[in-house]
Write a protein that binds this DNA or RNA. Structure first.
Length: 493
RNA sequence: GGUCGCGUGGCCGAGUGGCUAGGCACAGCUCUGCAAAAGCUGCUACUGCGGUUCGAAUCCGCACGCGACCUCCA
């Protein structure tokens, strides 16, 4: 595959709302930052979708030959439960509820998050920094913001002065908001009298005496504001300006808007060149969210033990289901759609197995090169995984036709196809064989092969009653037999 | 209320001016002792009403319906 076929890569920059050619700042290096989870509860499927989107981005950039430094944070302090910059720290609240030390909560749900990422074959980032590990950098950033005149202290807390910032800079550019509209839409400011404007947000928050997670600072004991860590850590590991920042659509405002303002205020430069936002997973048309209570955990998904689930679905089925939809579109979860995805994935993976058994012919009856080009074109067009999957299914038809002797491919053609599927299915889409197929258990396979041999003998003497009985009894045990030209194969139902 | 987005065949979902993805389901055929699997064929849609255009699912306007953000959320 020539590099010419591979590029150029275009992605939708949500800052400009346009599809743009991706050109890294310092090729071949790419700096990628993605907002990670706040570790105070189990991640649900909607969270998984977001991390999956950027996993595919990471995989694709890597596939294109870029050296990607992928930073995805763990938020282990700072987000508040209640109203704007008031109320209890989420992690502290959870710690109280579960009667654990806050850092035990953090560890518990960080472990859980990692388990889920592994389950869905989502690659770990290059750096996974925590907010609590970067207090010095965050305090430094607050100081720079104060020095530049866009931060002010009030009663031990430090706030970002949004109206003042907006006088000279574009606040609201990313989310398409105007400062005067925001002003007229503010809710009551009760309990926020420390702020000069209701639009201001905390970059450092004073801790009450009973607060468990607090650190010394020039403004007294406190903790960092909830937008600050991403700015401080992305700057530390990726530089003042870096290539791509990703996150869920719901983080666009205010979180990402505030990140931009903080970086511009502190360091004078816009931090991000390409912003990318993944869309939401919905259930019955409504966003899956912790606060909606309509999420299910991966464990419930696998077992089917949830009122919204008719059956259990494997992690790869879910992954495939999500990849059949473009990342920027909302995707509605339903049992019918999941069942369709399950069947489709099965057919795709079966064809990959078949591909490795193909016998070469004298001519090429299908244009593998063109198919490959279309796969690259799809991915280069804003990570259009649904179109690429459609192309892969074109390939499935080719593979099965060759296997059935209805089409011919040369050894070179078969090799190209193998290379394509290895790259696209496993490396880029990140799908993997998961359940025990025939070969994972030697004893099991030997046992079934023995029954297949007995059945073949029965068939040979036209004793179809016996041969069907063997097949039916194995089926009742979850073993499916398939008669092919090369003999009988088996798999689990 | 403000801002943004969406509405595609039985279902899920691509597609941004003509060449009408793909998956699942369904029907017929081929293969098979019969099944299963696989292949072939069929099923040809774009919320409604106007407008622009030789031509619109695709552009513009209006209406209706739905959602997201505006408060922690991927």
């Amino acid at each position: 595959m020539s590099d010419l076929l591979k590029g150029p890569f275009h992605l939708t920059n949500t800052l400009t709302r346009k599809k743009e050619e991706f050109v890294p700042l310092r090729p071949p290096h790419v700096g990628l930052y993605v907002c990670g989870p706040t570790v105070y509860s189990d991640v649900h499927l909607g969270n998984v979708r977001s991390f999956l989107t950027f996993d595919v981005l990471y995989r694709w950039l890597t596939h294109l030959g870029y050296k990607v430094r992928y930073v995805r944070n763990i938020t282990d302090v700072g987000h508040l439960v209640g109203d704007v910059d008031e109320g209890e720290d989420k992690i502290a609240k959870r710690a109280r509820l579960e009667q654990l030390e806050p850092m035990e909560i953090v560890q518990k749900y960080t472990n859980g998050f990692h388990d889920v990422m592994r389950l869905f074959n989502i690659l770990p980032p290059s750096i996974e920094p925590t907010a609590t590990g970067h207090l010095i950098e965050q305090i430094g950033m607050v100081e720079r913001i104060v020095e530049s005149g866009y931060g002010y202290e009030a009663n031990g807390s430090v706030y970002f002065d949004v109206p003042k910032f907006a006088e000279k800079h574009a606040y609201g550019e990313l989310s398409g908001r105007r400062i005067d509209e925001l002003m007229s839409n503010t809710r009551d400011t009760e309990g926020q009298d420390e702020k000069r404007s209701p639009l201001d947000f905390a970059i450092w928050k004073k801790a009450e005496p009973q607060h468990l997670m607090k650190w010394p600072s020039p403004w007294g004991e406190g903790f960092p504001g909830w937008h600050l860590e991403c700015s401080a850590m992305s700057t530390k590991y990726l530089g003042l300006t870096f290539d791509i920042h990703g996150g869920g659509m719901d983080l666009k405002f205010p979180h990402h808007e505030c990140e931009i303002a903080q970086s511009v205020a502190a360091d004078g430069v816009a931090p991000v060149r390409y912003w990318m936002h993944g869309n939401m997973l919905t259930v019955n048309g409504r966003k899956m969210a912790k606060s909606e209570g309509n999420g299910f955990t991966p464990e419930e998904l696998l077992t089917g033990n949830h009122k919204l689930l008719e059956q259990g679905y494997s992690a790869m089925t879910v992954r495939f289901f999500m990849l059949q939809c473009h990342y920027a579109s909302t995707l509605d979860f339903s049992n019918a759609a999941m069942q369709a995805a399950e069947k489709g994935l099965e057919r795709l993976m079966a064809a990959v197995v078949t591909l490795h058994k193909l016998k070469p012919g004298a001519t090429d009856g299908a244009d593998v090169e063109a198919l490959t080009g279309r796969c690259y074109a799809a991915m280069n067009d804003d990570l259009n995984t649904p179109v690429m999957i459609a192309e892969l299914f074109e390939g499935v038809r080719i593979i099965n036709s060759v296997h059935d002797g209805k089409l011919e491919l040369t050894a070179a053609g078969i090799d190209s196809l193998k290379g394509l599927y290895q790259s696209m299915v496993f490396e880029v889409l990140g799908l993997k064989e998961e359940s025990s197929s025939a070969s994972d258990d030697g004893a099991m396979d030997g046992l079934v092969q023995e029954f297949i041999r007995m059945r073949a003998e029965a068939k040979a003497r036209k004793d179809f009653g016996s041969s069907d009985a063997i097949r039916d009894r194995l089926l009742a045990l979850g073993i499916v037999l398939k008669d092919t030209k090369e003999g009988t194969t088996w798999e689990r139902a």
